[in-house]
């Protein structure tokens, strides 16, 4: 029976795997959507997250008013988050909210400076949802949805 790969092919695959491991960003952890631990909801679908962040839905399941939070426009997490849930770039999202907020159709998510602020507000205010790098998780928040 013929071997599935030749020696050269084995070597090429090994080099490719090594290159992938070396080139993969060290911080390529998942992005998670979180809320405060006191919030009774335990799960949101991607579509529900997208509806809340695009202003199409203003309450969480159960009726609590949703307070979505954004990280600063310069953060990599924000760009990744919107790409994941809407397929749109940060600039497209900005143009979308320019159209919505100046025409009485909604207000964009509030912006907070850092992940630690997200955890602070999620603990203090019912209805807060936000996205975080998985590495930033601690016991003050719970995960509603994993994005990547």
């Amino acid at each position: 029976m013929q071997a599935p790969f030749t020696r050269q092919q084995h070597l090429a695959i090994a080099l490719a795997l090594l290159a992938f491991a070396l080139l993969r960003p060290a911080n390529a952890s998942d992005l998670v959507v979180v809320t405060g631990t006191h919030n009774p909801i335990n799960h949101l679908s991607r579509e529900q997250v997208a509806d809340i962040y695009m202003g199409r839905v203003t309450t969480l399941p159960g009726g609590t008013s949703a307070i979505p939070l954004d990280l600063p426009a310069s953060s990599a997490e924000r760009e990744t988050f919107y790409n994941e849930i809407t397929g749109k770039s940060a600039a497209q999202i900005k143009a979308y909210w320019a159209r919505m907020s100046f025409t009485g159709k909604g207000t964009p998510p509030k912006q907070v400076p850092s992940s630690s602020d997200i955890k602070k507000y999620a603990s203090a205010k019912p209805g807060v949802i936000a996205y975080l790098d998985e590495d930033s998780l601690d016991g003050s928040v719970k995960v509603l949805c994993t994005l990547k």
């Binding site: 143009a95 320019a98 159209r99 100046f102 025409t103 009485g104």
Partner: peptide, 27 residues
């Protein structure tokens, strides 16, 4: 409620798709 919103006052007449955003050049 989550589905219904009532607005009273002075607003843009929504004749066209871009009526509401007609002044927002960036959009």
């Amino acid at each position: 409620n989550d589905a219904l919103t009532l607005q009273l006052g002075r607003k843009r007449l929504p004749m066209f798709y871009n009526s509401d955003a007609q002044d927002i050049g960036y959009a």
